[in-house]
């Protein structure tokens, strides 16, 4: 298959970016999108052009590193990560526009690679259960109903790729944040810190400069882990409850 790529090139966070056009020729339909870029990059190197820099690692859809916006859609057509997108999804001779994930809290590192440490800082502000290694009771001491454990797992499946924030016209990170709040808040182990967690995570999210939720649900449409936006509703509920408690001076 043959394609024309319009690729965003940017030398560094402070430098202006631009689109460059590269042909992608003789691409096997069974190649993944990233393998297609590998082939194009090999060609560029032979021409003495620096290859397009893009983040990727596991290439099996779980690490959350790959982060391309393809024709305006984070991770491109279909549900799944960029690395799990195969060229057979495209038509021969398609013009494909490739951009980095765009959001103010994700500055471009170079070309298509962005800095997503804002997500790490959100988790650091409370996206955990405080527990000292070695202090845990027996794993079966607290039964957790299977539906609850399964529901928590639905949220825990988040791979932290940031496609939600990249897809949201407001660059809102609510789906990511609510997934963590949902995951930990559903489990008995996480309940002790539930109120503090939701307050801290939402505040850090706001401080990092993510936008607000307009209930567009673009986030859930691109989420490779299939996390539903109903976790955002849960977060709204928990946040309201925690805020009321905080406002009236109740124990958190």
């Amino acid at each position: 298959m043959n394609f024309t790529l319009r690729v965003w090139r940017q030398n560094g966070p402070a430098e202006p970016g631009r689109f460059e056009e590269y042909p992608a020729l003789d691409i096997p339909a069974d190649a993944s999108f990233l393998e297609m870029l590998d082939i194009v990059n090999e060609g560029l190197i032979h021409k003495g052009v620096e290859p397009v820099q893009f983040d990727h690692d596991c290439r099996e859809g779980i690490c959350g590193t790959c982060s391309l916006t393809i024709d305006g859609v984070p991770h491109g057509p279909g549900r799944g990560t960029t690395c799990q997108l195969y060229m057979r999804k495209f038509q021969d001779r398609d013009v494909i526009t490739i951009e980095p994930f765009r959001a103010a809290p994700f500055p471009v590192v170079r070309d298509l690679a962005v800095d997503r440490r804002a997500f790490d800082r959100i988790i650091q502000s409370g996206g955990f259960i405080s527990e000292r290694t070695g202090s845990a009771p027996d794993a079966n001491a607290t039964p957790i109903p299977k539906p609850t454990a399964d529901f928590a797992m639905d949220a825990a499946a988040c791979i932290g790729c940031a496609a939600c924030a990249a897809a949201c016209p407001n660059s809102s990170a609510m789906l990511f944040v609510s997934a963590k709040i949902g995951h930990l808040g559903l489990l008995p182990q996480g309940i002790a810190e539930k109120n503090r967690r939701v307050l801290n995570l939402v505040r850090t999210m706001d401080e990092e400069g993510f936008g607000n939720c307009s209930n567009y649900y673009a986030c859930e449409a691109v989420c490779p882990a299939g996390i539903p936006a109903s976790f955002i509703a849960r977060m709204n509920r928990e946040y309201t409850a925690a805020s009321v408690k905080e406002a009236i001076g109740a124990t958190l």
């Binding site: 454990a149 995951h183 930990l184």
Partner: peptide, 22 residues
């Protein structure tokens, strides 16, 4: 055995039986 205890305490959502046990 301690690893499983540790992970459950951290909120790792291991698969469970209907009775709530692992």
């Amino acid at each position: 055995t301690s690893i499983i205890d540790q992970c459950v305490a951290q909120g790792v959502p291991f698969a469970r039986e209907y009775g709530g046990l692992l």
